[in-house]
Structures are given as C-alpha cells and as structure tokens.
C-alpha cells in the first residue's frame, strides 16, 4: 500500500525528518512520538503538503512524492487532520458530500455512503443541516472522520484523532477505528498510546525526526522503553 524510502524533508532550511523508511500494508499502523518529533510533518509529506527533499513515497507502487494534495486525495488517501479542517460555514451534510464529490471512485455513490456514515455517527444525521462550525469539538472530529470515510479511502490517515476530546468520545473514536480495520489501511498518530495500541497491528516510534523503533502492537506493549516513555508505568 504505502511505502516510504529514505525520506528527508523540512520547512525552509530546517530539516524535520531524515532517513525515514516506513510502510503501511493492509493493516493498521500507529505512529508515536513526543510533540515536535515530526509526526505531522510526515503526514503532510504523504499528503503532498510538504515537498520531500530526498527519498520517495509510493502508493501501490506508484510514486506520489511531489504530486499535488488533491490528486493524492483522488488516488484514495484520506486524511483526518489534527485541526479537522472542516468547512465551518457549510452544513454537516455538505461537508460529508464534499468528502466524496471529487473522488473518482466515490462520487457516484454519495447517497449510500451518506447512509453508512450516518449509521456510524447518528449524531451527524441528527445535525445534518447544522453548520459545521457551530458544533462541539468532538462532533467536529466525528464529522472529519466521516468526511474522510465518504471518499472510500484505501488509506485512511488520522492525525491525533483523540486530541482535546473527552475520554468517552476517545473510546468511541477508537471503537470506530477497530471496526474499520478490515476494510481500509489505517495510519494513526497518537499521543494516547495506550488507547491506540488496542486498535493497531503495528507501530513506529518517531523521535527527533528519525524512526527509533518499529514493532508489532504486542511487541511495543512489552518494550521496556515504550512502557517507560509512553505508557507511563
């Protein structure tokens, strides 16, 4: 699915990531690390929002590094950004609709997709006519996930999906993720490592722009460094 080799990139003259080798197959992959480690930059690079300096990014063998964000999205990569990036002055339903309207393999299937998303998040159905900007943070997060799923993604990327949410909603979000695992590949970055380890198959630990550890979920759970630094035991 997604294959990154020798990736190096940054902003201006500041290098953020170097020598990144990274892979997501038909599975759920977690990306962990402290604030400022480069998680969001890595996601931005995948989405074409930050241009790589070196290395390559491939999606199913097709090179996507250097492509525009919108064409990467049209190839089946959907992002749930940390800042959600919704259209605040448009209705919930229009937000969802736009998730699929420009994706070639999803745009003809909008009504059915909408029903699916509404079944997954009943609150969105209830508020379908409300402006996205007037909803609570948790509801906006669900809408962002819903909008991403509308595009029938092959790869779903979630950047800190639980950030700023109350625990009950975090649990809800992860339940949804677990439910999705079978149909799409997932890449999720999280600070809430304990919660996300329940939902993933494999994980990477990113520190200071380098990958310092890669292992299965089980392996990470028992790794003494992870336990000490991220699970806080």
């Amino acid at each position: 699915m997604l294959k990154i080799q020798g990736l190096e990139c940054g902003y201006g003259r500041m290098r953020v990531l170097e020598a990144i080798d990274f892979e997501v197959g038909a599975e759920s992959v977690g990306l962990f690390g402290p604030n400022g480690a480069g998680k969001t930059t890595l996601i931005s690079a995948i989405m074409g929002m930050v241009k790589p300096w070196k290395g390559s990014i491939e999606l199913d063998g097709q090179k996507i590094s250097g492509a525009e964000t919108y064409s990467i999205a049209r190839m089946g990569v959907a992002l749930v950004p940390q800042e959600r990036e919704l259209f605040p002055g448009m209705s919930v339903e229009d937000n969802l609709m736009l998730g699929a309207a420009y994706i070639p393999h999803a745009k003809d299937d909008i009504p059915a997709q909408l029903e699916k998303i509404y079944a997954m998040f009943p609150i969105l159905k209830e508020r379908r006519a409300q402006f996205a900007g007037t909803m609570s943070g948790g509801q906006q997060r669900m809408l962002a996930i819903g909008r991403a799923l509308m595009s029938k993604p092959r790869l779903l990327i979630l950047d800190e999906p639980s950030l700023g949410l109350q625990p009950s909603i975090v649990a809800e979000v992860f339940d949804v993720l677990k439910g999705l695992k079978t149909s799409v590949s997932i890449l999720v970055t999280e600070q809430n490592v304990r919660e996300s380890l329940r939902a993933i198959d494999r994980g990477y630990v990113l520190e200071n722009g380098r990958i310092v550890l890669a292992d299965s979920a089980e392996g990470l759970k028992t790794n003494p460094y992870v336990v000490k630094s991220y699970l806080g035991i």
């Binding site: 064409s71 999205a73 309207a101 420009y102």
Partner: peptide, 8 residues
C-alpha cells in the same frame, strides 16, 4: 480542507 478532499 478543500485540497485534502480532492478539490483542485
């Protein structure tokens, strides 16, 4: 947000 849902 528009770019990430595939809008040019």
């Amino acid at each position: 947000g528009a770019a990430i849902v595939g809008i040019n």
